[in-house]
Design a protein around this nucleic acid. Sequence first.
DNA 1: GCGACAG
DNA 2: ATCTTGTCGC
Length: 235
Amino acid sequence: MNDLESLADRWPADERAARAVQDELRGRVVLDEPGPRPGTGLVTGVDVAYDDTRDLVAAAAVVLDAATLDVVEESTAVGRISFPYVPGLLAFREIPTVVAALAGLAAGPGLVVCDGYGLAHPRRFGLASHLGVLTGLPTIGVAKNPFTFAYEEPDAPRGSTAPLLDGEEEVGRALRTRDGVKPVFVSVGHRTSLDTACAWTLNLTPKYRQPETTRRADALCRRALAEAQEGAPRT
DNA sequence: GCGACAG
DNA sequence: ATCTTGTCGC
């Protein structure tokens, strides 16, 4: 277990140090496990909302029953912004508060679904992989944008896919979750396969483009941020 | 050097 | 991410 204070203490102070952390930790990503069976057990969505002007960040973790998509448990955490947004270094901005929210859960989270990328990353160590290595949990990343990667448009029906490419390398998959709607971009985080990650994403999108996990976590962290702003009106 | 760039 | 109204469509 990583206690939160040591996590904060070791947090990189600048971009160079952050990239060094990624280079050091990426070797710990586990890629030879298939991952939790899609649609079974628990699945947890995590997301973060910011108020840069007040230096506030709120994270949420929402646990769903994978079979019914009913909410089983919710947890939030509020903190100070620990890093600026830098493409490729998103994890350093989101992870401390996300880890705090996960730590507040009574139940084991099961699979963790992140709003962003895992292996699909300039150094193959995006948010989902980083969170997985720090917590030991199986993780996947489901992003709304292709970032710097290339892809061909998947066919129109829900479930269609196309490789997400960094040059010749497939780093993830563009996955259509709704007929005729812009795809989402799925990548492996930690301890899951890409097929598993895509199957989970389809299970989590019976009605909307975005996974139910992400939608629930997004709504909850916004609420938590709003409440934190009421509690700390001035800056 | 310039532009692009998860959230 | 966040700032923001109405509007088109199932």
